[in-house]
Amino acid sequence: MSPEDGWRRLAALTPARIALGRAGAGLPTREVLRFGLAHAQARDAVHLPLGVEAVRAGIAALGFGTLTAASAAPDRTTYLRRPDFGRRLDEASTAALTQAAGEPVDLALVVADGLSARAVHEGAVPLLSALKPALTGSGWRLAPVVVATQARVALGDAVGALLRARAVAVLIGERPGLSSPDSLGVYLTFDPRPGRTDAERNCLSNVRAAGLTPDLAAFKLHWLIDQALTRRLTGVALKDESDRLLAGPAATGMIEA
């Protein structure tokens, strides 16, 4: 096999930019153009406004109730420059969620724009659709799904606390990469309240058709929620061992005689 063939085989296995070739001392024109397109797509994903009503309609079609909320960041520019504002609810949302709260619930779900509204537009409803049967079968009490704008991950702590939830899962658009402007992240926190740290959360990343598929992400998230509610913890103390169930009895030593 020639070196060129070897590089081509490797390039076919990854979206990473390898084996791009050379034109003189630089890259081929096609690769320069591809890079420019990927960079533009990433920038667009960051600045694209969340279609709140469309997202709510998609979630409602699955049978979930919905609420809306906004962070203390009044606009996208402020949101990008002041991450701390994105971690706090604005006054109107705080009042609305306080009024909407009822009896304590097991789980609150937050769908947030984060740094890629595109990821939410394309991935939130498929993930919730895949997750719903497991939620229904578990019998957990659920709060209405909160669709949040100008939001960072920690906004879920305030939402979960106000809705009296034992745990909160935040589905949020991740920072776009140059090959993944549509990547959705999921952050699970037990006993949510302002002041929680990232070490107290579990994260599923790269949820999208070309990454962690919605079905597999839903499987893992359900496992993590179940363990969080049972063991009363999340974060570094809770390791994702859901793959053992996918691997079958042999993976856990439970081999039939």
Rank of each mutant, 00 (worst) to 15 (best):
G156P: 01
A130P: 14
G185T: 06
A169T: 06
A165S: 13
L162A: 15
R141T: 14
S179E: 13
L155Q: 03
A143W: 01
G173M: 04
R166Q: 15
V159P: 04
L184Q: 00
P181M: 10
K132W: 05
V153N: 02
V153E: 05
W140T: 10
W140E: 04
L178M: 11
R152H: 00
T149W: 10
G177L: 06
P181A: 08
L135P: 00
L142P: 02
V168R: 04
L171H: 11
L163H: 04
S179M: 13
A165T: 09
W140K: 07
A143H: 06
G139P: 06
V170K: 08
V170S: 05
L131T: 04
A151R: 02
G156L: 04
S183R: 00
A130E: 15
R166E: 14
W140M: 12
G156I: 03
L163C: 07
A167W: 01
S138W: 10
V153H: 02
I172R: 00
S183V: 00
D182V: 08
L163R: 02
A161N: 11
V159Y: 08
L178G: 09
R152D: 00
P176I: 04
A165I: 02
V186F: 09
D157N: 03
D157Y: 01
L155D: 02
L178D: 06
V147M: 01
L178F: 13
L178C: 10
V145C: 06
A130K: 12
G137M: 14
P133M: 13
A148N: 04
A167N: 11
L184G: 00
V145A: 08
L163V: 10
V168F: 11
G137E: 14
E174M: 13
G173D: 05
P144L: 03
G177M: 06
G173V: 01
V168M: 14
P176M: 10
V168H: 07
A151Q: 04
A158D: 09
L184W: 02
P176C: 08
A158S: 15
L155A: 03
S179P: 05
V186K: 04
V159F: 09
G177D: 10
P144N: 08
V186L: 14
A165L: 09
V170L: 09
D182T: 01
L184S: 01
A148Y: 00
L131F: 08
G137T: 13
A143F: 07
G156N: 01
G177V: 10
V159G: 08
A165Q: 09
L155Y: 01
V186I: 14
V145L: 11
S180Q: 15
A161G: 10
S180K: 09
A148L: 05
Q150A: 15
P144D: 07
P144H: 07
G173Y: 00
D182E: 13
P133H: 15
K132P: 02
L178S: 12
L142I: 12
A161K: 13
E174S: 14
A143V: 10
I172D: 01
S180Y: 03
A148I: 07
P133K: 12
G185D: 02
Q150L: 15
V170A: 03
A169Y: 02
R164M: 07
A143C: 11
L162R: 15
S183N: 04
A148T: 10
A167C: 12
L142Q: 07
A154W: 07
P133R: 14
T136C: 11
A167D: 10
G185E: 02
A167F: 03
A158R: 05
L162P: 06
V145R: 01
R175E: 14
T149L: 05
Q150S: 15
V153C: 07
S180A: 15
